[in-house]
Amino acid sequence: MYQLEVLIRNFTYLLLGAVVTLKITAISVLMGLAIGTFVGMGRLSKRKIISIPSSIYVEFLRGTPLLVQIFLIYFGLPSLGLNLEAFPAAVIALGINSGAYVAEIVRAGIQSVPKGQYEAARSLGMSHTMAMRYVILPQAFRNILPALGNEFIALLKDSSLVSVIGITELMKSGQIVISRTFASFSIYGGVALIYFAMTFTLARIVRYTEKRLAIR
């Protein structure tokens, strides 16, 4: 009973942490999308000066642990004279990391659009950039929406890792409450439920968008 009481009394506090989690996720998602779109296109570029760095970016960030990347940015950059607050450091680490996964998704998405679409756009006098922007990417994004949704959900969950650099998001909020109350089971249980509520809602939103944007 004590356990439940503690959870109820501290629930609002946990929700405040969840708001921070959502903020971090939202900003990182946008960053990841922006990076991923360019890097994903970059990997398909015929020019090696663009495609090789893009590939290195993706391989390196997918091949190293997110926790190491977070530490590198928050604890490592200051020794190079670049001090970042915890929040921007967290968002940058997550955004850069997510960018690598989004890049792979975007690359697959672009490749899923038939070649004839690009040719038709170019045959009407569109530049490469215009063809990408108005013809290829809008179709690619429709095709990859489910995969992007998974990536956003993973990102939301991975954002719990930034609790280690002292950001009071949902996970950290839970730990703070536990350090005062020792009600580990109910608080971690509550934290898990709140994460689940968020990912479930996000999945629904993705599903809904997918249906609305489906090519009729």
């Binding site: 004839g116 679409q117 038709a120 756009a121 045959s123 006098g125 215009m130 013809v135 179709q139 090519i215």
Partner: peptide, 27 residues
């Protein structure tokens, strides 16, 4: 130079009228 393809290659995410207006407006 206009080109017509074997497989039409209409833009499936755009309505018929938007298929027609896209290039003249943008290009």
């Amino acid at each position: 130079i206009g080109m017509v393809f074997q497989h039409f290659n209409l833009f499936p995410h755009l309505k018929v009228i938007e298929n027609l207006t896209l290039a003249p407006v943008k290009v």
